[in-house]
Design a binder for these strands. Sequence first.
DNA 1: CCAGACAATTTTGCATACAAAATCGAATCA
DNA 2: TGATTCGATTTTGTATGCAAAATTGTCTGG
Lengths: 231, 231
Amino acid sequence: MANNSVDSAHNSTPSDEVMAASLVGSVVDSIVDGVMAGRYAQGQRLIAADLADEYGVSRAPVREALHMLAGEGVVELIANRGARIRKLSVQERIEFLEFTEAICVLGVRLATGKMNDPASVEAIDKAFEAIEESWNRRHARDFVDALYRYHIELNRISGNQFLEFFYKRPYIRFYTTLLADLAPGGHWDQYILNYRLIHAHILSGDAHSSVITFSSHIRWVLRNMRALGKS
Amino acid sequence: MANNSVDSAHNSTPSDEVMAASLVGSVVDSIVDGVMAGRYAQGQRLIAADLADEYGVSRAPVREALHMLAGEGVVELIANRGARIRKLSVQERIEFLEFTEAICVLGVRLATGKMNDPASVEAIDKAFEAIEESWNRRHARDFVDALYRYHIELNRISGNQFLEFFYKRPYIRFYTTLLADLAPGGHWDQYILNYRLIHAHILSGDAHSSVITFSSHIRWVLRNMRALGKS
DNA sequence: CCAGACAATTTTGCATACAAAATCGAATCA
DNA sequence: TGATTCGATTTTGTATGCAAAATTGTCTGG
């Protein structure tokens, strides 16, 4: 019975592989989009039948999508009580940032070492421009999103598949989105200054100073968040 | 419609919440156990109907379980072609270890800072004894499992929910198990010496030296794995 | 007016049914 | 022999049905 042939390298999230064709995939996408766009609130209950009607499918693929998202950590499944959008307290968001710092540092370090490749420089410059652009508009969610994409790019450049794999996952996107409520806060100017510095260090190709700069930025953000959390 | 009450702190993986009662939960558990125990090979195809028969349930909960595990990264779902146990090449396992180092370093750092609490010392000492015990038996899988549990314990002590949450996820457990094939290799003696050193540094309460010791251990493991991968 | 019990309704969890797609295997042809 | 086609079989993906659990709303007694 066991069939062991496995084709080749997949650089996609596990979910991506099911996305293309199936209804499950489209429901997963829709729900994730809905969460990102703020259409579903944290802690909101998701009723399978409602979603099924909304997307014009039966409950079976909806339930499968919800289980997939539960595996991802975007929704929370409670026995006999269905699915809810996962809810993160301020404290949890702080811990999440502390946690993602650890991962991003690796991306910063590895990507900095690849700045001798002009294509990488161009890609990361482009991602940085998006940061500047959203900063000009002072749009918190877009700003955090641009920062997120900047790190996606770093992780891609790093060449470590897991960095990419992990950072693209829906629950990371979801949790990251939640940071928009806290992160830039009233510190727009310092925020962009920090990132200009980080970006310059990355371009310089000096991995050590990149990591230092990035880490101290995150620690500054964490201090701000903790202060906000207390008030 | 939106009902926002969410109870309290869950320190469990998302899957745990569905585990207790439901069939989906028991199927998820069985599959994960099967993978850990080596009953399912990497890349092996999982046929929903077979699993359903095996566990005496219908295909519906089996499919939901497979989607959940796909979300967690343990299985791979391909449209119209079902589920397979995810397969990692040696290169991918190397990148995975490089990636998890980043996470574990945070755990090591934070937990070291909590060694003034006798309960933490006791807990981590106990976890370390399990490492020594499995080392005495020279049982690669148990050894890697004990190391895994040691870091679980560090992450718990660290107090960062995400460290704990993330590190306990099935796919980490899954990948960690895969390392058993490579990691200890012919280096049993050096391996335990390294961990004795790491453990001592952690107990000392000096976070900086703990991190350095741990990182250089991982780099040593990575060198070994790269050498093995080439031969 | 509020707390608690209870019945009606909603919602979940699981099983089953069936069409479409993929897989397997035998027969065919070069 | 080895590759290829084509039909039979397996397997997937989705819809539907139904019992059990949870939720909601109403009524009752204090």
